[in-house]
Design a protein around this nucleic acid. Structure first.
Lengths: 217, 217
DNA sequence: TACAAAAGTTAGGCTTATCTAACAAAAATA
DNA sequence: TATTTTTGTTAGATAAGCCTAACTTTTGTA
């Protein structure tokens, strides 16, 4: 049994290593993402090392052990299943699910998650288009191509978002965009990197930062 | 915002005062029910007093303030709604719901609970027959009459259970008893207070302790 | 390569929620 | 009523998770 804090460190390390293809993380980076000070993260790393959840030496890089990775994936699985429940069963909106799921992901009951999975009909993706890991910890490869990578003239389909913050998601909805929308990249501006796209015959111009947070296939 | 620990103290105080008709509670009693030492409970009482959630003087009796009572009722509402969800939607059994609901009751999101209430179709009673408080904090009067209070020869209906422990609930199921069963009290033994009841034409003999944990009307 | 900047660590403190041990007040009883 | 028992309180300790301030190691660059 791990505390909520410990679980959050594992979840964040998973994002920082496996999910980003980085393979290793640093103390400051970890602390920043968790909103704590490096000294705090350092203390926790020692604890997680003692529990064999991270692979780590003084002044060295941080990696998850197999056990740590599995635990992190379990949290992601729980988070995404709860998001799916909130969205599809309780009528939460796209941008509201994340915050509540941050709490629900720490509920400890294997049976609860299995039953929830079944109740939701074994969903493959959460409301943000992110893949839901299986019970065994298998997770579909995360999308790598963003809207910014698409060449002008080409078509693509919006399949997920990188940023799950309320601010970003509300912005997306406001622009009239949603998952599975078919997009065409009209142009990419050389001066300020604005990207003009066409959706449903309507043209909209978005920033580089925005385009890099939209995953497409 | 209160911590899980604080919420558990309020919930327990509610049980000890309002729900039992006692109206006041003692430190040892409270500590016992929470599984902590009296010294610990004493510390917490000071904190809750400072937050205006309990009414309490040194060496005096403990009462909940209106705010403390409301908060406690909210926890009970959440607990019972989650139990109903687990039982009716996820297929948990009678004796499994309590433990998981103990965790879920601390999730902080008013919207979540309102939506859950709606999703469950505004249930009035949880799977143990206990009334679910309304959003405003109105709670149906808890049943007072137990199987032990019924005179031999009389009929009654099992509407709730007092004890929600796995041990007790499994025992109830094992005896073939369930909510809404029609019972007839056959006899009450003067020597050891065993109560013989008839259900579906089958006679079973239960202890005084058992009979006192079955609410009937 | 030497040194400045960045990254990481340690030491010592704080808060919350718990404990034990010793003490004080209230209640029960002889 | 005096004394014992029960109940409640205080003081001091511990572990988790966080902090700041000072220090050390590594990295990047002039």
């Amino acid at each position: 049994m791990l505390s909520n804090a410990e679980e959050n460190y594992l979840k964040t390390l998973l994002r920082l290593t496996v999910q980003s293809g980085n393979k290793e993380a640093g103390t400051n980076e970890l602390a920043n993402m968790l909103g704590v000070k490096p000294a705090t993260a350092n203390d926790m790393l020692k604890k997680l090392k003692a529990k064999n959840l991270v692979d780590y030496e003084r002044y060295g890089k941080i990696r998850l052990t197999a056990a740590g990775k599995k635990w992190g994936i379990d949290i992601v699985r729980k988070h995404r299943l709860w998001e799916t429940f909130l969205y599809h069963k309780l009528g939460f909106s796209w941008d509201e699910v994340h915050e509540v799921a941050e709490q629900l992901e720490h509920i400890q009951s294997a049976k609860l998650i299995d039953k929830l999975d079944e109740f939701l009909n074994f969903p493959q993706y959460d409301p943000h288009g992110d893949p839901i890991p299986s019970k065994k910890g298998e997770m579909k490869v995360v999308y790598k191509q963003t809207l910014f990578d698409i060449a002008p003239g080409k078509h693509c389909k919006m399949v997920a978002v990188k940023d799950n913050s309320t601010t970003f998601l509300k912005y997306v909805v406001n622009l009239g965009l949603g998952l599975n929308d078919k997009l065409r990249v009209v142009s990419k501006n050389d001066f300020d990197a604005q990207v003009v796209i066409e959706v449903d015959g309507k043209k909209i111009s978005v920033s580089k930062k925005f385009a890099e947070n939209i995953f497409v296939i």
